[in-house]
Design a binder for these strands. Structure first.
Lengths: 383, 383
DNA sequence: CGCTGGCATGAATCAGGCG
DNA sequence: GCGCCTGATTCATGCCAGC
């Protein structure tokens, strides 16, 4: 095991990591196995841990897009486990080691997907951590489900937990978050894009350096919520170093642990280039659309429209029946409000919201009226 | 244990639930413990299970410690562990019993919060269920966090799982969901208000009948996504009967299991009042998968294509000759329309119906046009 | 220089019928 | 149950080439 020190933050070099002081490890990347590295750190020395452990994806075979291109899957050796039992053993080992280095009032964040997050949450609870929240990262631009056999997997889950049930003194910057969120409490569902574009680290071939690089905006909110300036943030699966980059920018210290030299090299160069700056990355993603999208099905699900209701165009030339599944039926055919509007008119496209009308008090009103009703409710959720 | 039958759906009364037939239980509420009730139902008889299990360890009778002893702080950790172990045992018991009554291609939904959902997900995986998605119910109007010590808990988590890893034939109305969602595939994060107003059941004192009544809109999307009309939906923690009310409205059968007579009474009255949707409006949008298969040879047999006809791709890069046996010939090689389409392009797979074109009036048209013609004839013949 | 259309790609547990 | 064959299936975004 060795300590990789960033030149810009160099201090007195340590030949080996001493248990007596955490200072020697600040703003460094420790190369090695995460449990072994954690065990050599002093206990109760870290304010917050952010961990992005392997997800144990269990992929089998290739997946192709409808255009026949191959999906570049996460098939790295570090994501391979023989069984749930093996994954659980791995999880308990690193969580136990992580808990030792956490200060009594420290908190831990772990991110995962449905493949692993339930195992992680169970282990956290079994080891004595106390869950404070689960937080949903909603992706603005998730990968589609190409085969149409499931819902589009459009989120990941983070668990935020304190070291102990009775730890009351953990850091939570409630007022700052509220002020940054239009004076509303910060909710447990966050909306951010996935990491793409210039933020995404690429190698000399233009390939992504790390398959699962997290967006800095996500880490920024995590650190702004649960740390204070000068706090020590540890990331036991450092990868491409997002945690370190954001910690440096926000004036927090980081400690990274990583096994792969290629990731360490990339992370070092990345963090070197970080300019400690203002907190503009915390800016909330307002969404690119002025108005949130509303599924027609919501009108049925919420009872604003009932299956069997007849819709017509403004001049009553065509009539369609609302189906329970959220489609419209005309003469035995079923399609979405938009496609059916286009079809009856013989057009390529049509805005079903303004084309189709329902009758109320003898008056024809566009179903867009009902959409406005739904949006009023949605506005409260900051959707 | 007794069966509570709704008057409007009365059948021959059964003194006790027989394992020989599920029909006697349809559209009824079984009073009793959920594991015992499940064990008396016939195996592989239910299409979908929706479960909203209890998670408050202190309020659930089965989960009380036998001696009701008060533990001091030192023992807290072990107390938690005991509680979690008891909850896990409870969870495994009902999930195992539920899995037995589920059809091989059935699916299960379980809803919970961070208090219990990780235990549930782990148990599901350990018992052999295969998680298809976790789905987030985002609340438009969640309760605030009054202490300001955590994020506002603005969502709940649902897990959707098939009975087995290799069960591929489960119901997922992909096309219908997409049509009802602005022609975009349905995501894993859903936005709905919590159950309030006139939908919320109140007793004679104006108090809510059930503490965790779920909104009908949520159940409507669950059932529209994963069931077909006439399917059997079982809810082992029936409570105020939202599952039953929505199932009746959408033309699905329900089976409820509930211990508390007060909940049963309220649920019965509620479901009685539900007006079922017209059967015609329940028809679900079908995708191309549901279309009957057409052998390419039929185009030859019906004379829509003749042997010797030349087919090309849309850009006329390749040309193939239609053989009398229903294969395509290119440069001395013969293969199916799909294989040959893949071969000339150097791909693993290809949909020959959309790849190969014939010329008519100087215009290139995909042979899929001819397949549509055949299907129209088949439909007219009532095939 | 700006606009547009084509192309690439992201933590993915991604098929079903028939013989 | 296994093997073979058919043939269905994608959203948001960034980048680049071409005009």
């Amino acid at each position: 095991m060795s300590v990789v020190r960033l030149a810009s933050t160099a201090r007195a070099a340590a030949k080996s990591v001493q248990s007596s002081s955490i200072d020697a490890c600040l703003d460094t990347i420790i190369k090695g196995d995460c449990v072994a590295a954690l065990e050599r750190l002093p206990e109760k020395s870290v304010d917050v841990i952010f961990a992005d452990p392997p997800y144990n994806l269990q992929l089998d075979g290739d997946l192709h897009r409808p255009d026949h291109s191959k999906v570049d899957a996460v098939d790295d050796h570090w994501d391979q486990f023989d069984s749930f039992a093996a994954y659980d053993a791995f999880t308990r080992a690193w969580l136990l080691a992580a808990r030792r280095v956490l200060k009594p009032n420290g908190t831990i964040w772990v991110i995962g997907s449905y493949h692993n997050i339930f195992r992680v949450g169970t282990s956290l609870q079994d080891l004595g951590f106390w869950i404070l929240n689960d937080v949903i990262w909603r992706k603005t631009n998730p990968m589609p489900n190409f085969r149409g056999r499931r819902f589009q997997n459009a989120h990941e889950t983070m668990i935020w937990a304190s070291r102990d049930q009775n730890a009351k003194g953990y850091t939570f910057n409630y007022e700052a978050l509220k002020a940054a969120n239009e004076d509303l409490q910060m909710r447990s569902d966050w909306l951010f894009p996935i990491c793409t574009g210039s933020e995404r680290l690429k190698d000399e071939n233009g390939d992504k350096v790390h398959p699962t690089q997290k967006p800095e905006a996500l880490l920024a909110r995590v650190l702004m919520a649960s740390t204070k300036p000068g706090d020590v943030v540890l990331d036991p699966f450092f990868g491409s170093g997002t945690t370190g980059a954001v910690a440096k920018r926000l004036g927090r210290h980081f400690i990274g642990i990583e096994r792969e030299q290629a990731y360490i090299d990339a992370a070092m160069a990345r963090i070197e280039a970080v300019e400690p700056a203002d907190a503009k990355t915390l800016k909330i993603v307002a969404g690119k659309r002025a108005e949130p999208r509303v599924a027609f099905a919501v009108l049925l699900e919420t009872g604003l429209l009932k299956p069997g209701t007849l819709l017509t165009d403004a001049k009553r030339r065509w009539t369609a029946t609302v189906q329970a599944d959220g489609s419209l039926a005309v003469g035995g055919e079923q399609a979405s409000i938009h496609r059916m509007g286009a079809r009856v008119q013989g057009l390529d496209a049509c805005n079903g919201w303004t084309f189709w009308h329902y009758e109320e008090d003898g008056e024809l009103k566009p179903i867009d009226t009902l959409r406005a009703e739904v949006r009023k409710q949605m506005a409260a959720a900051g959707a």
